[in-house]
Design a binder for these strands. Structure first.
Length: 303
DNA sequence: AAATCGGGCAACCGCGCGCAG
DNA sequence: CCTGCGCGCGGTTGCCCGATT
């Protein structure tokens, strides 16, 4: 029944790779390619490594055309922008950064960019000013308790609560941070409204931020199921609790908007490829600033 | 000069999905 | 149809090294 085990787990080496192991793996992949990783350890000179470990080592370190130098200012901006759009989908973000791996991007975000955002008073998970976030949570906290005999509150009352999404719609998502600006939530960051991702609002907001609605709205209209209770609905906000339950009963506009946003992204993956979509969005100067470096000059990123 | 601390990064872990057997 | 592996992915851990005391 099924396939045989991929490797003898009791006889595989763990820990840092040696130069000799790297050389064996590189020699093999350069002549045979990277298909069927389970057979690579044996074929590449009896490496005592699991095929999975070989794949990781190759994709994160040995693969040709990888960049090993520091991230550039443009790359930083792109990561922040894409994280605001996609959340922690590192592989998709890395696809937009030639020569960078998802592990590179993830590490850079966790060690540098998230801290930089926090220092500027911006929540790196929601990309919203922290002050606004606290205000929203505070507003929700003073809601009256449920009536006696009423159903117990949902397990995730804050980030998956319909009023929270409704409040969130009124808030703004910060996709860029000015490295030297004072840490003020009112600073002049480029911002997106969650309502920008509502299909119903697409026409009305076209002049403000045309690219995201134009790209995502078509999927909502054409294929995204309406207001489904998507597991990972919180992903749009960075998967806050990691236990992503549904976003409610699906009847709330705010929850539906968040779900539709995620659905739109997933449908993009399936129907046209997310790379193409992101490329279109980023190519629009009104959204990302194109290659003109407008954000760098206007916002003083990293200056 | 030695000890401690903290940041950065490579690698591992565990999960979900698709598919081979 | 069922089982379990291959693969890809995101989250987490642990080690190394430079900075600080």
């Amino acid at each position: 029944m099924g396939r045989p085990p991929c490797c003898d787990k009791a006889n595989v080496k763990k820990g840092p790779w040696t130069a000799e192991e790297d050389a064996k793996l590189l020699a093999y992949t350069s002549t045979h390619g990277t298909g069927n990783w389970t057979s690579v350890p044996q074929r590449a000179g009896r490496l005592k490594r699991c095929g999975k470990s070989c794949r990781l080592r190759y994709t994160n370190y040995l693969r040709p055309n990888l960049k090993h130098e520091n991230f550039t200012q443009e790359e930083e901006e792109l990561i922040v922008t894409l994280h605001a759009m996609l959340g922690s989908r590192w592989s998709l973000i890395a696809n937009q950064l030639p020569g960078r791996t998802d592990n590179d991007v993830k590490n850079y975000w966790n060690t540098k960019l998230s801290k930089k955002l926090r220092q500027r008073g911006i929540d790196p998970i929601t990309h919203r000013p922290i002050a606004d976030l606290m205000q929203s949570i505070g507003t929700l906290a003073i809601r009256p308790p449920p009536a006696a005999g009423a159903a117990p509150p949902p397990c995730l009352p804050v980030f998956h609560d319909a009023p929270y999404f409704a409040a969130l719609q009124q808030q703004q998502v910060v996709t860029h941070v000015d490295a030297d600006a004072p840490a003020s939530p009112d600073s002049q960051h480029l911002q997106l409204n969650w309502s920008d991702f509502l299909a119903d609002d697409a026409a009305g907001h076209g002049a403000d931020a045309p690219a995201p609605q134009a790209a995502l709205g078509q999927y909502q209209e054409g294929s995204a199921p309406a207001a489904t209770a998507v597991v990972g609905g919180g992903r749009a906000f960075g998967d806050v609790d990691g236990a992503s339950a549904g976003v409610g009963d699906g009847t709330d506009d705010g929850a539906g908007a968040a779900s539709a946003f995620i659905d739109a992204i997933l449908d993009c993956d399936k129907e046209m490829g997310v790379d193409q979509l992101i490329a279109e969005m980023l190519a629009d100067p009104a959204y990302y600033g194109g290659g003109g470096g407008s954000f760098s000059s206007e916002l003083g990123w990293g200056c």
